[in-house]
Computed example of a mutant assay.
Amino acid sequence: MGGIENEETLCQGCGVNIQTTDKTQPGFVPASALKNDIIICQRCFRLKHYNEVHDVPYTDADFLEMIGRISQTKGLILKIVDVFDFNGSFIKSLHRLTGNNPILLVANKVDLLPKSTNINKLKHWMKKSAADLGLVVQDVYLVSANSGRGFDEVKKAIEAYRKGQDVYVVGATNVGKSTFINRLIDETSGTKDAITTSYFPGTTLGFIEIPLDDKTALYDTPGVINRGQITHYLSNEDIKQITPNKEIKPRVYQLQPGQTLYIGGLARFDFVKGEKQSFVCYFANSIEIHRTKLENAESLYEKHLGGLLTPPNEASLDQFPALQEKSFKISGNKTDIVFPGLGWITLSGESVTISASSPYEVPVSKRDALI
């Protein structure tokens, strides 16, 4: 990597090797900081002075090796997921890495859900889905790291479940883990057991240790890259467009069989067979939805992807995967067709055949309707 980087020069906040050449990589400090008696990396500096926690890039293997060390300790695991991207933000191997430690599932961005969302139903679905993926959680909490909604409840749960032990916060990239920790720091500062921004030297590579009291700490861990997140195939401009920044407003489409909806150019929904009926779309308000005839859908996509059908914009087109189709026959119950990282379309429960297309690595799924 060049510059200053050796095992003798370690960050006294998180233990990472200090280097002076690449701001985007772990351990960066300006060269002028090397004359200080105590050297801490830029990430730790911003935590200490500004209460800001920033993820740093690690490989999947780095992350899993680090998280695996938690299994040899005793503590509480807080697993942060994105309420709009449960599958994409779920670390599927986590149950093999955390030993017998209790796990609380914390879903972020709840303030962006439509007010009509059945919260209890959502929590039940998340708990069951986690179990189906091999992870038994003690409970599920819905929060907004931006607004603070749900934080009183989750703070009480942390104290109740940790039983005087350490707390480890884990999550995939882009789930708001850093914002969650920042909110937790802000809301507890000044209390008897304040989460402060002081550190202990020699902590494990990639973890930041934030004392909870004299004996225990909260550990921030690096965000893991999950290849099932659609954001990995998009530019920053596209990510901003697909990420809701206020409550989602449902959009209702009356469709005849043989009609198609495009969610920007990122996903496709085909009404193949059934009676004319309503389909309710829940996506970021900034994403355009286009309706066309099924027979014209392919040519529309080929001609207008990156133009009329955006996102993805031109900066993302080269890395954006081809769409893969999946068919569903639905009858009897209201059902959500979920497009990971984007949102979902609710079907009324009338008998229909539909097909849904999304990038290969980001497969569409179905669930009982949450609204």
Rank of each mutant, 00 (worst) to 15 (best):
Ile4Arg: 11
Ile4Gly: 11
Asn6Trp: 03
Cys11Tyr: 00
Cys11Pro: 03
Gln12Gly: 09
Gly15Arg: 05
Val16Leu: 01
Ile18Thr: 02
Thr20Met: 07
Asp22Gln: 10
Thr24Asp: 15
Gly27Leu: 02
Val29Ser: 01
Val29Ile: 13
Val29Trp: 03
Ser32Asp: 10
Asn36Thr: 10
Ile38Asn: 07
Ile38Tyr: 03
Ile40Arg: 08
Ile40Leu: 08
Cys41Thr: 04
Arg43Glu: 14
Phe45Gly: 09
Lys48Tyr: 04
Tyr50Gly: 10
Pro57Phe: 05
Tyr58Phe: 15
Phe63Asn: 12
Glu65Met: 07
Gly68Gln: 02
Arg69Val: 11
Lys74Val: 07
Gly75Lys: 01
Leu78Thr: 01
Val81Phe: 09
Val81Leu: 08
Val83Asn: 06
Phe84His: 02
Ser89Met: 01
Ser89Trp: 02
Ile91Phe: 04
Arg96Glu: 12
Thr98Ser: 12
Asn100Tyr: 13
Asn101Arg: 09
Pro102Trp: 05
Leu104Ser: 04
Leu105Pro: 02
Asp111Met: 04
Lys115Trp: 13
Thr117Met: 10
Ile119Pro: 04
Asn120Glu: 11
Leu122Gln: 08
His124Lys: 14
Lys128Met: 14
Gly134Ile: 04
Leu135Ser: 05
Val136Asn: 15
Val137Gln: 02
Gln138Val: 10
Ser144Met: 03
Asn146Thr: 04
Ser147Val: 00
Gly148Asn: 11
Phe151Arg: 03
Val154Gln: 07
Lys155Trp: 06
Ala157Asn: 10
Glu159Lys: 13
Tyr161Gln: 13
Gln165Glu: 14
Gln165Thr: 13
Asp166Asn: 14
Asp166Glu: 09
Val167Ala: 06
Val169Gln: 06
Val169Phe: 03
Val170Met: 09
Val170Ser: 02
Val175Pro: 06
Lys177Val: 03
Ser178Gly: 15
Thr179Ser: 13
Ile181Lys: 00
Arg183Met: 10
Asp186Leu: 14
Gly190Thr: 00
Gly190Gln: 03
Thr191Gln: 12
Thr203Ile: 12
Thr203Ser: 15
Thr204Leu: 14
Gly206Glu: 05
Ile208Leu: 12
Ile210Tyr: 03
Pro211Met: 11
Asp214Ala: 15
Asp214Trp: 06
Thr216Ser: 14
Thr216Asp: 05
Thr221Gln: 11
Asn226Asp: 10
Arg227Val: 13
Gly228Phe: 09
Tyr233Asn: 03
Ser235Ala: 07
Gln254Asn: 12
Gln256Val: 11
Gln256Ala: 14
Gly258Trp: 07
Leu261Gly: 05
Leu261Asn: 09
Leu261Met: 00
Gly265Asp: 01
Leu266Asp: 02
Asp270Phe: 01
Glu275Arg: 14
Glu275Ser: 13
Val280Thr: 06
Ala284Phe: 07
Asn285Val: 12
Glu288Leu: 09
His290Ile: 09
Thr292Pro: 08
Glu298His: 11
Ser299Ile: 12
Tyr301Ser: 06
Glu302His: 10
Gly306Phe: 08
Ser316Cys: 05
Leu323Gly: 06
Gln324Ile: 13
Gln324His: 10
Ile330Pro: 08
Ile330Trp: 05
Ser331Asn: 10
Gly332Gln: 13
Lys334Val: 05
Thr335Asp: 01
Leu342Lys: 04
Gly343Arg: 00
Leu347Arg: 01
Val352Ile: 15
Ser355Gly: 10
Ser355Cys: 06
Ser357Lys: 04
Ser358Ala: 14
Tyr360Ile: 15
Glu361Ile: 04
Pro363Leu: 05
Asp368Ile: 12
Asp368Lys: 15
Asp368Arg: 11
Leu370Tyr: 07
Leu370Thr: 08
Ile371Thr: 14
